[in-house]
Design a protein around this nucleic acid. Structure first.
Lengths: 124, 124
DNA sequence: CGGGATCCTTATCGATACTG
DNA sequence: CAGTATCGATAAGGATCCCG
């Protein structure tokens, strides 16, 4: 027997899973981290982040904006200027992300060891 | 100018991003959560998790095993019996995951509000 | 400079069928 | 029961061109 709210919990987890999915793709973490150091414009962001196509950067930024983690400020000058920055929510989001990041870093050796052992077992 | 270890930090973040990617697909969180309640066999796991194909379940479990978060114990009886369980590392991993989950739940309303506002802006 | 539109290439997912 | 193998659909990612 399980707790009565098990189904609700499952629904929550699906919701969380979706949010995690939105938030944890390959690039989101990198972008949030760069923006954590201060506002940044599109192409500057692109250079800082590394090997990302503008399409993916644009769509990732749209997602972040849609979820309220990033703000987008257009200054209508010539040439156009668009600044991206973390919102309060986005800055707050750095906290759990850092928690996860720290965990990964702390346990990187264990994970690598597990992977090596797994590879060894597989090739035997 | 930036801190001298910025490149290294970037590499770290790419590593973290990869780990996050491994760890945060649609199903991983759900599976880890179910296993957090105790060991479970393949088909039982499949029923508990919900709408998942055995292919995806199998490959997700392989990934988790490869990263050392889940153990796989085969008991050679008839019919075959395979138990999956969290390893110590996997149990420890619940901590940051829960941190993230809590953050998502705490801020779900804000995120939904941001999404609603964004949608409203877009349709205008 | 900051993207949108398009096309093409790859992973990913799911369903079905088959094995020890 | 616990998977692997195969196939088709679909989504994600990248490259390129173009426009305000």
């Amino acid at each position: 027997m399980q707790a009565p709210d098990y189904q609700a919990e499952t629904a929550q987890c699906v919701f969380i899973g979706r949010m995690l999915g939105r938030v944890t793709d390959k690039w989101t973490v990198l972008i949030v981290r760069v923006l954590g150091r201060g506002p940044c414009r599109f192409n500057a962001l692109r250079r800082e982040v590394g090997e990302i196509s503008q399409k993916v950067l644009a769509s990732t930024l749209r997602d972040l904006e849609e979820n309220g983690l990033v703000s987008r400020t257009v200054t209508p000058v010539n040439p156009p200027q668009v600044e991206y920055a973390l919102t309060d929510l986005g800055r707050d989001f750095l906290r759990p992300i850092r928690g996860l990041a720290e965990w990964v870093l702390e346990n990187a050796a264990l994970i690598e060891a597990a992977r090596a052992e797994y590879a060894a077992r597989a090739s035997t």
